[in-house]
Design a protein around this nucleic acid. Structure first.
Length: 484
RNA sequence: GGGGGCGUAGCUCAGCUGGUAGAGCAAGUGACUCUUAAUCACUGGGUCCAGGGUUCGAAUCCCUGCGCCCCUACCA
């Protein structure tokens, strides 16, 4: 890309040259230093320290100058006094610009106003910035710029950096927790021959060496289950899925998932994992159990145990115990009446069965009201065709939808391990397109997969919950945008 | 997919019913040895997203395109 020449760039190139002539090479080398956060924490008047970071502000007072240095761990004030610096070091200081990265050594000092500072005795240039940083007070505020040039967002906005450290820590603590419970972290193929484990359009690619097309995975599920067949009984994978579908506030085409499988377990084993994992993440990552979610700052308490309730019981709770005995016309009339009362817009076009109507009612008037963490269980088979039926009622499947703050956070399953039933369901789903069935997966099931509990959650969505962000783009470092 | 909004200096933003562009921060010069978004004085800085149209005249009105945001719909 052509570098635009503007006044800032020209001036900075000029000052870079002048600095070089004074012995300050513009791009330095390894510089041993202490983190600013540590310097602040172990502050001791008069102590000698070396620090390094980016200049965020310069308050020039003539012979005594104050700078704010940011090294990513903290901000700290540097003082450049003529008395304390060599003539060259002081003269060279005047050529520094905002955004430059410097190393400085000197002694710690508290100003009259009580600001902990470093009086610089010697300093060195580590990296010259040719571009003018954003305004010091507002930082970079344009959302598009924040996404496209995240490095600028990160360097100027402390909250942005903090948010991504939360994400980083979350990944670490998910691993730590699952490892501590005896789960092994595994990696399965991202480049696959056919996209399975979910219903989504894949991205296509090609193996040159094999002269063979492939897809990028939409879920790791089918490979993880092969591991259960093989006797790896407790596994998890933390990695990316790729779905070639809509991009909006809650969907990025590549997103991070955590799938967990436990052999000899079921849906309830997965509930137990969530009840252990979520409090652990709250405690270790954000230091509190109660998260304020959304614009209305609804407090959500992640302290277990979480509510467990059957889908039908939730519906009865709103529509009455006799709902499922009523004729369809009566149900329709009742649903409309209650919707009107609550000012909810039901989408009833093409709704011709009790199942569809009930689900619309659940979707629009029940799920949204489930604020505290809730496992909605015993869901109609039609909504989750590939799942295993409840032993006592084949019209229901033994799964949960984990709902928090009125939104579905993740599903959990008693996994289908009957290869004949699984094939039937897959064939049903594939319709004419029988090629879409992963025969090797079925074959694996035919070798015998233990009864298994499985769970998959979107890490991005979880980060959104824990950081109070309502856009996935705010928790993905480089969200997908159109070419500018 | 449908609807709405936005795009102006490096950054944050003003710019009314059309009259050739403004502020703050940032930058340059000068003053200042305890500042905190330092202060004061002076100075420079623009493809008003792109292209077309209406007009004597367009940042402003109209059309098309590009990008972003929001609402809504769809989504194992």
């Amino acid at each position: 890309m052509a570098q635009e020449t503007n006044e800032y760039r020209a001036q900075r190139l000029q000052s870079m040259k002048a600095l070089a002539e004074m012995g300050y090479a513009p791009y330095g080398c390894k510089y041993d230093h202490e983190d600013l956060a540590k310097v602040r924490a172990s502050f001791e008047e008069g102590k000698a320290v070396r620090v390094a970071g980016r200049l965020l502000m310069i308050r020039r007072m003539g012979k005594m100058n104050f700078c704010t240095l940011n090294d990513g761990t903290d901000r700290f004030q540097l003082i450049f006094k003529r008395d304390e610096l060599s003539e060259t070091a002081f003269a060279a200081f005047k050529l520094l610009n905002l955004g430059d990265i410097i190393g400085a050594e000197g002694t710690l000092f508290t100003t009259q106003k009580g600001e902990k500072s470093l009086v610089v005795k010697e300093w060195t240039m580590l990296a010259k910035a040719l571009e003018q940083p954003p305004e010091k007070f507002h930082g970079l505020a344009d959302q598009e710029d924040c996404y496209r040039r995240r490095y600028v967002d990160l360097m100027t906005n402390d909250e942005t950096r903090a948010r991504f450290y939360v994400r980083s820590k979350l990944l670490k603590e998910i691993r730590k927790y699952l490892w501590s419970k005896g789960f092994a972290e595994v990696e399965t193929p991202i480049l696959q021959n056919q996209a399975g484990g979910a219903a989504a359009k894949p991205f296509f690619s090609h193996f040159n060496a094999l002269d063979q097309d492939c897809v990028m995975r939409i879920a790791p599920e089918l490979y993880l289950k092969r591991l259960l067949v093989g006797g790896m009984n407790k596994v998890f994978e933390l990695g990316k899925d790729f779905r070639n579908e809509g991009i909006d506030r809650t969907h990025n085409p590549e997103f991070t998932v955590c799938e967990i499988y436990e052999a000899y377990g079921d849906r309830t084993s997965m509930e137990a994992i969530m009840e252990g994992l979520l409090p652990h993440l709250c405690d270790t990552v954000i230091g509190k159990r109660v998260v304020e979610y959304g614009e209305k700052k609804v407090p959500i308490d992640f302290t277990p145990p979480y509510r467990r309730v059957a889908y039908k019981d939730l519906v009865k709770g709103l529509m009455g115990d006799d709902w499922f005995e009523k004729p369809f016309d009566a149900q329709l009339a009742q649903a409309k009446a209650i919707a009107k009362e609550r000012d909810v817009n039901l989408e009833l076009d093409g709704v011709t069965t009790e199942l569809m109507l009930t689900h619309e009612v659940y979707d629009k008037m029940i799920e949204k009201t489930l604020l505290r963490p809730t496992f909605v269980t015993r869901i109609p088979h039609a909504f989750v065709p590939l799942a295993k039926a409840c032993p006592d009622d084949p019209s229901l499947v033994d799964v949960f939808e984990f709902v928090v703050a009125g939104r579905e956070l993740c599903p959990g399953y008693t996994e289908q391990n009957d290869p004949i039933e699984q094939r039937k369901a897959l064939e049903n789903q594939a319709g004419e397109d029988t090629e879409k069935i992963d025969e090797d997966f079925i074959r694996a099931l035919e070798c015998g997969m233990p009864p298994t509990g499985g769970l998959g959650f979107g890490v991005d969505r979880l980060v959104m919950f824990l950081t109070g962000c309502d856009s996935i783009r705010d928790v993905v470092l480089f969200p997908q945008l159109k070419r500018a």
